[in-house]
Amino acid sequence: MTQNTKNIIRRFLAFFCCAITISFSGCLVDSTVSNASPTIVFTTTWQYISETYSFFELKKIDWDAIKQRYETKVNNSISSDSLFTVCAAMVRELRDGHCYIGRKAASSSAAGRMFDVKPFDFEQGYEIHFSLPNVVKYIVNPQQKGRVLLTGMVGDSIGYVYYAGFYDNESGLWQNVMDDFKQKGVRKIILDIRNNGGGEPRIATDLCGYFVNTPTVVGSMTQKSGKGRNDFSPKLSLTALPRSPYLGNVRVNIVINRSSFSASSYLAGMMANLPNVQLIGQITGGGGGGELPFELPNGWVVSVSCNYFTDSKGKHIENGVEPTIPINNTAEDVRQGRDRMLETAIAR
């Protein structure tokens, strides 16, 4: 091997080693961004929300005024915890349960939780009284299906189903429930979505399919389409496609409360305008926007609603879906094993 060849090989090996060094040195860069200045973190949080949030107009929120109010509380000597508290308070000004700021929890501060998250409490100020053991007392032969469905009959002709969460991997269980109701010839279905915190909203559209016999628009989504406050897409229709068995000729009473959030509000909003459907109980928790998280310069995450749902009559559900028949349980009802909301759904 000539000296020239040796030199070339040495140069290549040096280049190769440099490439590997550059690659591995990249591993160190992430840790430095955790030193992002508090003012940059605050400004990025505000800016992202300004460009992304979809309910400023509906809620009449003056986001520029909110910035002025909170930026005076932030300077570059503020502690990380104080900055988190300030940013979280600013996010809660959106009054939206889908909006939060979160960070990886320090083990000492969050009692073993992975994340420290501060969302808006949409249940605050509402009396919410619900007990599933009390519900079971009204049901003949209650059966648990998967983690989220409890079904049974009330008398001979009323099918009851309690739905605890819109989990995609259990959505197939609904087919069994609906087939069972059809087979039993129920004259009324009570769909109880109290304390259902939501999940996959597609399931709401699918469920509507059992109650329509032609493709039916059950609502629409409007999507943020740019950074401007008024940059929105046209309305994007949500269509329920007919599913078998058809149960649209059966009365459906949907029982709701303030803890029926997000996908539960979507379902209530979609079903509310179908024939033979009544909403019974308490206004839902709302949550009519899909969340879009974003990573901040210090590794925290801020998430806000970036679209909104309106029902087939164009009504927003963000602040909650109103019941057709308002009724609420009291704390005393629950103590006595009584469910006044369910009783109303059975009777009406």
């Binding site: 992304t52 995609d168 996959e200 909203p201 597609r202 559209t205 629409s220 989504m221 999507q223 943020k224 389409s225 740019g226 950074k227 940059d231 897409s233 046209p234 309305k235 994007l236 229709s237 949500l238 899909g290 879009l292 970036c306 679209n307």
Partner: peptide
């Protein structure tokens, strides 16, 4: 993906939406 949307911008122009 389009702005704040998991689908390309043509979905918005064509009025298409899906939750997943």
């Amino acid at each position: 993906p389009a702005f704040g949307f998991p689908y390309p911008a043509s979905f918005l122009r064509d009025g298409r939406f899906s939750f997943n």
